[in-house]
Design a protein around this nucleic acid. Sequence first.
DNA 1: CTCAATAGAGTTATCGGTAACTCAAAAGTA
DNA 2: TACTTTTGAGTTACCGATAACTCTATTGAG
Lengths: 333, 333
Amino acid sequence: MVSIYDIAKRAQCSTMTVSRVINNTGRISEKTRQRVKAIMKEMNYVPNHAARSLVLQQTKIISLLITDITNPFYTTLARGAEDAAQRLGYRLMFSNSDEDVKKEHEYIETVLSMRVDGVLIAPAGDQSLEHLQKLQLYNIPFVLVDREVPGIESDRVLGDSKEGSKALVEHLIQLGHRRIAFINGSPGISTARMREAGYLETLKLNDIPVNPDYMFETGYSQFDADPIIDKLLSLEEPPTAIFAANNFITLAVIRSLRSRELRIPDDMSIVCFDDLDPGYIVDPFLTIAAQPAYDFGRIGMQMLIDRIQGTANEPRSVILPSKLIVRRSSTEI
Amino acid sequence: MVSIYDIAKRAQCSTMTVSRVINNTGRISEKTRQRVKAIMKEMNYVPNHAARSLVLQQTKIISLLITDITNPFYTTLARGAEDAAQRLGYRLMFSNSDEDVKKEHEYIETVLSMRVDGVLIAPAGDQSLEHLQKLQLYNIPFVLVDREVPGIESDRVLGDSKEGSKALVEHLIQLGHRRIAFINGSPGISTARMREAGYLETLKLNDIPVNPDYMFETGYSQFDADPIIDKLLSLEEPPTAIFAANNFITLAVIRSLRSRELRIPDDMSIVCFDDLDPGYIVDPFLTIAAQPAYDFGRIGMQMLIDRIQGTANEPRSVILPSKLIVRRSSTEI
DNA sequence: CTCAATAGAGTTATCGGTAACTCAAAAGTA
DNA sequence: TACTTTTGAGTTACCGATAACTCTATTGAG
């Protein structure tokens, strides 16, 4: 592959002159500049990123670590991050941890090894603490998006899961529901804890006793809801509404209900966080707390680049509100 | 950041010894190996990828360029590619060209600059030719997935768009349809051409005259189908079925039909390529030609790594069949 | 006309790692 | 015991680029 030396030889100048032409720095006569440029073009020169970043000690690459590339919430977030990064002159490297702390660990190793300039990360869970401390140890700036991790002080962009949760449950209560089941993600993830807090608080505010039989913990990724639905339906007083903590859980729940010929919302109201991809859904019918996924990415990326370029000020938190969108999956009892 | 020199100093040995411990090469006494290993761990040493790839002339990184990160077909493909890459010891770098040749061009520049070991690419269109030739010029192995590009000889994994197309149209004809509209992607994309060929051929086989008023070309990405639906509905003999070339087009079409209170399939049958994300759709109702997206990625990645590591044999083509899945969006006339 | 300032380059060292070669001491062999 | 082989390292050069410094013509001022 053609290097700066090849160009220099051909142009009968030093590599430094070529480097100056490439970077538009230093003093170069217009004549030389044009000659070198022509030769670079002719020889199809492409600078070697590794060599450059080795000496510059910066890569202009930012790593984006999300937990599920098939979840539209995250792909939308990714798009926001990508657009912002591009605008500010950085390249993005996506990775996908699959909600798996071990896989996340491997990616962090790569990220460290590549000396990326910063990391925008939706951590797999509280156990991500260790990875994040490693980033801190190496002074690699990072911003948490969507989820926080206890023990880590850093910039972050979070959704207001608790408020969103309260809005959803309040909505159900307004519709007359009092037997509201809650199927949550893993308590090892901050959003799940916040959503539970919102659920509990709203019940309390409305003097509805908490029924442990109505509460479940599962994963945010694909899973089978049948066992849970079984239990709920076999209760003496089955719930009239289900609050599912995210879109994946909702899908599993809906599938399970459908397979039993139960209709939504007639037989069961459903509310949840995050839309199924708005671009995809032919017929949006879920009542949701919609989070501004694109902004999560966009704002997170801006904060990250601020941090990379800027002075080391206090960690900032941005909390983005979610919006209650009432559709047909919830109805009066 | 701690380098191999810091380790060497602390271990009182040469950098070469450290390098040998890292790579498990050369002759090292067990005692020294353990001592160096302990120090590396203690000092949290992480090898510098740039330095290493500079001297090794390989990065163990493969670039995956897809055209739309929000399209489940591509995210599923990406997952297949990722799994295969990981299994074979490579890291993946996703990028997203957004069906935009210019954006693709920028990513190719980055890819060249980073000297990745190979590129798995779903080209934005025929105009990608120029980028791909650049890859060829630099001897960077690449594999085309999903789409081919005239003028480029290379490994590739394609769907059998023509056969899939024929199956869909044949299915409609079997149901009694003869007025079948076809809303295609851009003719600058190979799959669109193949799908059109299948459409035309099947009509001909069944002695159905081609009606130019039934044929449209648009983009594979989000767009507004209203003008097209307007035209179709205002025809003297409006179609009874629509064949939409991909999932995005289908969505736009469905939205447009719904906004006119037209029911599917009662008022209009619809068939198309590619599922909306099977994991997402609450209630799959589209009749589709399903392509094995995961295998596109998996097989493509395997071919690519073969090519990177192996001998330079003839370019190989893998054609993956699509499967007709009949659901409720198509019915007898 | 002389000397300082500036334009337009070139030299050298370095980033962090590894290949290829070298070399002394220990171990094996005749 | 003397010589060869093996073990366990160290030295040096280089991958491709850039920072910092140096150097030589020009140019301009007085």
